[in-house]
Design a protein around this nucleic acid. Structure first.
Lengths: 148, 148
DNA sequence: TTTGCACCTGCATTTTTTTGCAATAAGCAT
DNA sequence: ATGCTTATTGCAAAAAAATGCAGGTGCAAA
């Protein structure tokens, strides 16, 4: 896989080493459908490398996040999810009632980002935010007067 | 303080009770300058109520957050901060290099919120997000070719 | 290929956060 | 005021996450 090669280069070019453990963490995240949490990564990596320690997972995830190869999303219910940063960057909207998450293309942020850059000089990362709110169905339930 | 009265009503109207512990957590957050973390809340409450348990702080913070009296912000460096939700709602931009945080008025989100509501029916909360990015000074350093 | 240095790992330990449970107390109704 | 129901608390214990350290290992340079 050539994309794997890019990844390895990215890691090496930054004074970091590509260890088997790190590679496994990386591919667990990449090959999971979309979002994956620490325990799922651990379980996945264990299949190929049973003795790996959970702290190694934590530390590798921190490194990969730092390198911006993966994104970290704090769900509003507390869970932390990781995701491969591919080309279709997006953000997350999470419903505060049903906890459902929808993905929204980054293009919606374009003008917001521009305003912030113009007025504050702050350059927003197209990082993955879990923005909380009320999804359509829950909003409708609320309007019907059906409390919670 | 009449505002305190409103708060107490909010709590009572939702099947929750206003205990001395809860009130102290509430005012610790309210009277802190802006952001405050769990340990700071704990330390603050202890002054008036020395035997309070840290788990009580965690649980009260969760309740107050649920009631939307306080906001919870995950900084990109991992720290979790709490803040009283007053009238001047705002969001946070945190620099991924220097970790400095700036506050930005919610009005900047208005058109973004409208777009999301129109296209997805999702109603974004004016919650406090810590959006990561590069602040002006760090961006300039980067452009000078001064790595990290 | 070999060497050397700095990064990484696993393990043990500490710190932080969550949870179960019995006792307590808030606050509504009488 | 008093009693009753049930949320809340403190404590202990569990679970989750972070950290220190000594030995192992990637990998660039010789």
């Amino acid at each position: 896989m050539s994309c794997e090669t890019d990844t390895i280069e990215t890691v090496r070019n930054s004074d970091q080493r590509m260890t088997p453990q790190r590679l496994l963490v990386l591919s667990a995240i990449r090959h999971s459908g979309e979002h994956i949490n620490i325990n799922q990564i651990h379980a996945q990596v264990k299949k190929a490398y049973p003795i790996i320690n959970i702290s190694t997972i934590y530390r590798n995830v921190a490194v990969l996040k730092e390198l911006r190869l993966i994104s970290e999303t704090y769900k509003t219910d507390g869970e932390t999810l990781y995701e491969w940063i591919g080309d279709h960057t997006h953000m997350h909207m999470m419903c505060r009632d049903c906890n459902d998450m929808i993905e929204i293309d980054d293009k919606y942020l374009d003008s917001f980002k521009k305003d912030i850059r113009d007025d504050f000089g702050f350059n927003i990362d197209i990082d993955h935010l879990a923005i909380s709110g009320l999804c359509k169905p829950c909003k409708q339930l609320e309007q019907v007067g059906y409390d919670n």
